[in-house]
Amino acid sequence: MREKIEEAAARYPDQRSAIMPALLIAQQEHGHLPGPILEEVADILGVERIWVYELATFYTLFHTEPIGMFHLQLCDNVSCMLCGSEDLLKHLETALGIKKGETTPDLMFTLSTVECLGACEMAPVMQVGDDYHGDLDIGRIDTLLSRLRADAASNAADDAVPALPGE
């Protein structure tokens, strides 16, 4: 982590600028950003701890609490709403047995709604990990969920860190 962070920091004349990239790196490695990780980031960059804490909480892509293996981020902004994202949310909540903002007990899925993902041409859209899934309907959601579950299972079988699903 230190090496990657230092490499990122080299892009800026001021170490403080590297807090965001450093947090992204740290989150990639640790899944989320608990206090000790924030302290480590501050130490590596030699910046005030409170600055790191401020950023880790200001930006919605940073998580200070653990999240599931797959983070389902359903867009519910205007364009997606107009194309039926509300029904998809209800469906996801039933299918997963959780409310939005929650994580399944097996820690597989966290379900969130997010503001516009910038892909309204394929509304309704959901981001899972790095990937966008567009033109969704209930059928496609179900296919997606079973694929994610299968991925997780095969990953567990390979005893590998779950790679995020490809495109």
Partner: peptide, 19 residues
Amino acid sequence: AVALGTVEKGMDTAVTGFE
């Protein structure tokens, strides 16, 4: 001292210290 800071944003904004 740079001990106090501001966490979260918008209506959730709160002044606090590290953790």
